[in-house]
């Protein structure tokens, strides 16, 4: 809006704007402020009701007290005291971060490679769209099914082990394939790579190809073009994908439970255990700490890339 009026785009619109601005001046700025507030109010109401209110509730409940079978409204710090005073919490948070970081690295490498291939190697738009849709096919089934189908595949007598044995690669079945950190991360990567592909592909598609030609004309090698042109221009997509993957992995509990055979814990499982045992206040406290952790991580990430500016 401001841009168009500054540059003075010819036509009728600046005139209307001037009029409306003048009118706004006459009736005072509060009226336009009120009007725009009114226009935004449905969204505000939705956000207040479905986002702020529940989170507010969680924060409130996190200070409550719980016994075996009842929850008592109160203001006590014992949930946080226990949470922050227990070394299990730190171990579990560390484990959650470990899953998040390893999954992030894997999904980023795969996601970037796939997006790069789609954006720069596939020439026709039809094929780009076709191949892109192919990537989404696994999403036609529920992610629990996609995850659980790994279990018979990776098991002691599963397809992976029996194939490796019949090929003579191994003599005894490999035990760490299933119910291990390996299995958890494999499932995460499988489930969440698409969340990396989509935003990266999206930003890559908007990179002006003449920039790459210019770089090539200026004598840049393929690696230099990748490092100095494509990666910097794909940063917003990478960042959005990163946020997706990190929040999904850090909030997950079911993948960790199934793929580790309940033998590993992450924060989501702590919360789900608490909920299962009716310890809602303690679950809420853990959720608040997790939320803060995720917000801090995202805050740090956003220091590196200003998504708003780059979009």
């Amino acid at each position: 809006m401001t841009v168009s009026s500054k540059t003075g785009v010819p036509g009728i619109s600046p005139g209307i704007k001037d009029v409306s601005r003048a009118r706004a001046k006459l009736s005072g700025t509060t009226s336009t402020g009120f009007k725009s507030l009114l226009m935004a109010s449905p969204l505000i109401a939705v956000l207040l009701f479905f986002l702020v209110l529940p989170i507010g509730m969680i924060v409130v409940v996190s200070f409550w007290q719980a016994t075996e079978f009842s929850i008592i409204p109160a203001f006590v710090l014992e949930n946080y005291e226990f949470l922050l005073g227990s070394d299990v919490t730190y171990r579990v948070f560390l484990n959650t971060l470990k899953y998040a970081v390893i999954t992030w690295v894997c999904t980023l490498l795969i996601g970037f490679a796939v997006a790069y291939f789609l954006a720069f190697h596939v020439r026709s738009l039809t094929w780009q769209i076709t191949l892109f849709l192919l990537c989404t096919i696994p999403f036609w089934t529920s992610n629990i099914i996609r995850m659980i189908s790994w279990i018979p595949f990776l098991g002691r007598n599963g397809i992976a082990n029996s194939t490796l044995i019949s090929l003579g690669v191994i003599e005894e079945p490999v035990e760490w394939l299933l119910f291990s950190d390996f299995a958890v991360i494999l499932a995460f990567v499988h489930l969440y790579t698409l969340f990396m592909i989509v935003p990266i592909f999206n930003t890559m598609m908007r990179i002006d190809h003449s920039l790459i030609e210019a770089a090539r004309d200026a004598g840049a090698s393929g690696a230099q073009i990748l490092w100095n042109v494509i990666i910097p221009l794909s940063k917003p997509g990478i960042m959005i994908g990163t946020i997706f993957v990190l929040t999904l992995v850090m909030g997950d509990f079911i993948t960790v439970r199934f793929m580790s055979g309940s033998q590993s814990a992450n924060v989501g499982r702590l919360i789900s255990n608490d909920v299962a045992l009716l310890q809602y206040p303690s679950a809420a406290a853990t959720a608040v700490v997790l939320l803060l952790t995720v917000l801090i991580v995202i805050g740090i990430l956003l220091r590196f890339v200003d998504i708003r500016k780059e979009l």
């Binding site: 702590l270 255990n273 045992l277």
Partner: peptide, 14 residues
């Protein structure tokens, strides 16, 4: 001591 036990159980899982 159920609550205590549950906490210890969580430690065991973690």
């Amino acid at each position: 001591e159920n609550q205590y036990m549950v906490r210890k159980w969580n430690e065991f899982i973690a």
